[in-house]
Design a binder for these strands. Structure first.
Lengths: 335, 335
DNA sequence: CTGAAAGCGCTAACAC
DNA sequence: GTGTTAGCGCTTTCAG
């Protein structure tokens, strides 16, 4: 398997009868050459099927890297899929290439990925969450490249941040449940001890309920990844331990939908007997027989803003270090 | 913004009192150095916070690239998210880095992405589908790197292929519907004229129904991306034109679930009045009040097999050029 | 077991 | 408007 593409600048230069440098200038669309030269260079490049070697370009001239890395907790989450999509569209449009990573909610995995990424000397990096290993922070400070932390907002970013407060999401839903007259409220979580952001949402709801004088009545903290099944069985377990609940706040929409399925299978009336609240705003949530009460998160926008902020910084344009995006509690028919 | 990492091989060599070459050998875990040298080199590298420059490595020695590109039709599809996850896990484990791309079901977008990718001299590439632009095929042939085409199986791959037949998925579901006594069967599609593979499934179901003597009774081909809403309104439109249908085959599970919601909102009994069949096997489909009848596709496995095949080829190990993965028609409660 | 030399393809800096 | 020179950090090759 020979991996040597045929043509390089030198080949084009030889055929055209100019120097490598002139060819380089033409191909990068700069200035400093005649129209005639331009045309000839372009023709020869086309004929030779020239493909630039960005490895060489980025290596020779530090500036030239257009590689951007993005690391998310899970690739299979619908929410992060949309974040990725926002990032990818913006970055592709701006002429960058996207390297992905998945940290499995582990700071060590994130650091391992970042170490690999940095060895490619990327132009910048987008990370999820605000908790990183000391090693990660070190690497980033030394690399001296733009960094955007997304999803969970931090007011003291390594460099830039785009996100919202998970704690506030939880608190807002807690207050909403109270306003709707719920008093014995349970919580079903997932990925116990792993997902800092799910944890923040639970902290938020706990705080709100405690302040209202009706602290969380029961909590079921699963180890599983948050999916439909987990929601189904999570609610089953929770109710077996705390039968009298009148509302449950789920880790996310997928679990809430699973919980809803369980409630209906069990013959519970929703929301009369039991209110169900989710988080995230997946499309399915609004088309179920019962529209789910949930918090909608602007996933694609976060990805887009992160990508654009990163590129703005690269270009030396002024940027806002911390961008708070709004989430929206959308009352459905399940609370 | 200074982007120059501090230490390089030369720095380590100087501090350790050996040559660059020896440092390089140690760091890459080769042989040809004493234990003592090894220890000292490792210590100094650690102390200096050395991070290899793979740009230089890959550039200098063609072999060394560990970049692999993967391009999918849509980043926001749950199915492709799992494919991506399978690819990412396998590739990360094997020491590769993943560059993503999204072709929006457009051969031109795919080619544009590929051109960018190739300029980074990747080790290999994974594409979705078997239809590519002539330019794409050209680029690939000249690049001389491993290529895996996934998702829709082709028996004449550019290099390797991992997938299944969408046509057969449709045909199988068509036969199943017939066996279940359905006779007036409709179809709801999406991304008309764009998604070759959804098209193949429709062709399959059409063929099967025609052969059974009960050709497709009505079809609604939407332009939209296939989501819950599209399924909801797609069914509404279809039924308004063809009221007497007794079964509908949807582009995918999301749309089928949307359709199910419409049927229920409309007061239709499923499956008595109307059977609903999906495709894909999303998790939600099996936890709804009614388990959806659908075809389950081994998404993660496809990603994993594609990645492993690619790496096997890179390593010169024997590989099977065409790998057919099985799909499974799972009867639920909606047919 | 170790080192020296050459070169990968490109671009910045400077000269003409 | 165009060319020359030097060098990015690494690995391959060959010499000891």
């Amino acid at each position: 398997m020979t991996r040597k593409p045929k043509a390089n600048l030198e080949d084009i230069a030889r055929e055209t009868g100019v120097s490598k440098m002139t060819v380089s200038r033409v191909l990068r669309g700069g200035s400093g050459f005649s129209d005639d030269t331009r045309t000839r260079v372009l023709q020869v490049a086309e004929r030779l099927g020239y493909i630039p070697n960005r490895l060489a370009a980025a290596f020779g001239a530090d500036q030239a890297s257009t590689l951007v890395g993005i690391c998310v907790p899970r690739l299979t989450s619908g929410l992060f899929a949309h974040v990725l999509d926002g990032v990818d569209r913006a970055l592709t449009r701006l002429g960058y290439q996207v390297m992905i990573g998945c940290n499995n909610h582990s700071a060590e995995d994130e650091e391992a990925w970042l170490r690999q990424l940095i060895s490619w000397r990327p132009a910048g990096v987008i990370l999820s969450g605000r908790h990183h290993s000391p090693g990660t922070v070190d690497l980033l400070r030394n690399a001296g490249m733009p960094v955007v932390e997304i999803w969970e907002l931090t007011t003291t970013p390594i460099d830039m941040a785009v996100g919202f407060s998970h704690f506030d999401c939880g608190a807002e839903m807690g207050q909403f449940l109270i306003r709707r007259g719920r008093r014995r409220i349970g919580v079903v979580g997932a990925m116990a001890g792993q997902d800092e952001m799910g944890r923040a949402r639970r902290d938020g709801v706990e705080r709100a309920l405690a302040q209202a004088g009706h602290p969380v009545a029961a909590a079921e903290l699963l180890l599983d990844t948050p999916g439909f099944y987990a929601g189904y069985y999570g609610l089953e377990t929770l109710l077996s331990r705390a039968p009298g609940l009148d509302a449950v706040y789920f880790h996310n929409d997928e679990m809430a939908i699973g919980g809803l399925a369980y409630a209906q299978a069990r013959g519970l009336r929703v929301p009369e007997d039991l209110a169900i609240a989710g988080w995230g705003g997946m499309e399915a949530a609004s088309v179920l027989p019962l529209r789910l009460t949930t918090t909608v998160v602007p996933t694609t926008a976060i990805g887009k803003l992160a990508a654009e902020g990163l590129v703005a910084r690269l270009r030396g344009e002024p940027v806002q270090d911390v961008v708070a995006v709004p989430t929206r509690l959308v009352p459905g028919q399940t609370v």
